[in-house]
Simulated scan of single mutants.
Amino acid sequence: MTAPSPRLLGLSHLALSVVDLDAAARFWTTVLGFEPLEPAESVRFLIHRGARLGVVLTDHAGAVTHPFDERRTGLDHLALAVPGEADLRAWERRLDELGVPHSPVTATDAGHHLNLRAPDRFPVELYAMAPSFAAVVGLADPVDAVARTH
């Protein structure tokens, strides 16, 4: 019998390779509300205190030359949790005000989502889990479906 896995506390941060550090940092701060920390030469550290999530952007000293492609091995997209459909509609209005292209809010059995692209075509999904789907995965409330501790 295998011993149980050691504890995980949740998602700490995401590190994304980007072509244009400044454009990517502007998107994550202006559009999604992340806060920039002190920039380094080829890295930008951003945090979202409410979501308790860090995003690290790097151009690998200028070595990143192509946009993201979810059809290659690796990350497909990043889904950021929102509390509910009304919040998702508020995001839709914000993106419209900022001129950020996005999909319409779409309903599935798992919840509602809205998709957009960060610089370098990086796919971001804003996702509000349906209460019925939360129950399927053993959660009392959809807002419990986030990678964080209380």
Rank of each mutant, 00 (worst) to 15 (best):
1 M>R: 05
2 T>Q: 03
3 A>S: 14
4 P>Y: 07
6 P>W: 07
9 L>I: 08
9 L>W: 10
11 L>P: 02
12 S>R: 10
13 H>S: 10
13 H>I: 14
13 H>E: 15
13 H>V: 13
14 L>K: 03
14 L>P: 01
14 L>Q: 10
15 A>D: 04
16 L>M: 08
16 L>T: 04
17 S>K: 08
18 V>A: 03
18 V>M: 04
19 V>Q: 12
20 D>F: 10
21 L>P: 02
24 A>W: 06
28 W>V: 14
30 T>M: 06
30 T>Q: 07
31 V>N: 07
32 L>Y: 06
32 L>E: 02
33 G>S: 07
33 G>I: 06
33 G>D: 11
33 G>L: 08
36 P>F: 10
36 P>A: 12
37 L>A: 08
40 A>G: 08
41 E>V: 14
42 S>F: 15
42 S>H: 15
42 S>L: 10
45 F>W: 12
47 I>T: 15
49 R>L: 11
49 R>C: 07
51 A>L: 14
53 L>M: 09
54 G>T: 09
54 G>S: 00
55 V>Y: 12
56 V>F: 11
57 L>W: 14
58 T>Y: 05
58 T>I: 04
58 T>R: 07
59 D>H: 04
61 A>V: 08
62 G>A: 02
63 A>F: 00
63 A>D: 15
64 V>C: 05
65 T>N: 01
65 T>A: 08
66 H>Q: 15
67 P>L: 11
67 P>K: 12
69 D>K: 06
71 R>S: 05
72 R>W: 04
72 R>N: 09
72 R>G: 02
73 T>E: 05
73 T>H: 12
74 G>Q: 15
74 G>F: 09
77 H>Q: 12
79 A>N: 15
79 A>S: 14
79 A>P: 13
83 P>Y: 10
84 G>S: 11
84 G>R: 05
85 E>W: 03
85 E>H: 11
86 A>E: 15
86 A>H: 13
87 D>Y: 08
88 L>V: 04
88 L>G: 00
89 R>D: 13
89 R>M: 15
90 A>D: 14
90 A>L: 13
92 E>Q: 11
93 R>F: 08
93 R>K: 05
95 L>D: 05
95 L>I: 08
96 D>F: 03
97 E>V: 09
97 E>F: 10
97 E>Y: 04
97 E>H: 09
98 L>T: 04
99 G>A: 14
100 V>D: 12
100 V>Y: 15
101 P>I: 09
101 P>E: 14
102 H>K: 01
102 H>G: 06
103 S>T: 11
103 S>W: 14
103 S>A: 08
104 P>H: 12
105 V>R: 02
105 V>G: 02
105 V>K: 02
106 T>D: 02
108 T>S: 02
111 G>M: 02
112 H>Y: 09
113 H>F: 14
113 H>R: 06
114 L>G: 03
114 L>S: 07
114 L>M: 10
115 N>M: 12
118 A>E: 03
118 A>K: 11
118 A>I: 06
121 R>S: 07
122 F>N: 00
127 Y>W: 12
128 A>I: 03
128 A>C: 07
128 A>D: 04
128 A>Q: 00
130 A>L: 06
132 S>E: 14
137 V>I: 11
138 G>S: 05
138 G>E: 13
141 D>W: 10
141 D>V: 07
142 P>R: 01
147 A>W: 09
149 T>Q: 01
149 T>S: 09
149 T>M: 10
150 H>P: 06
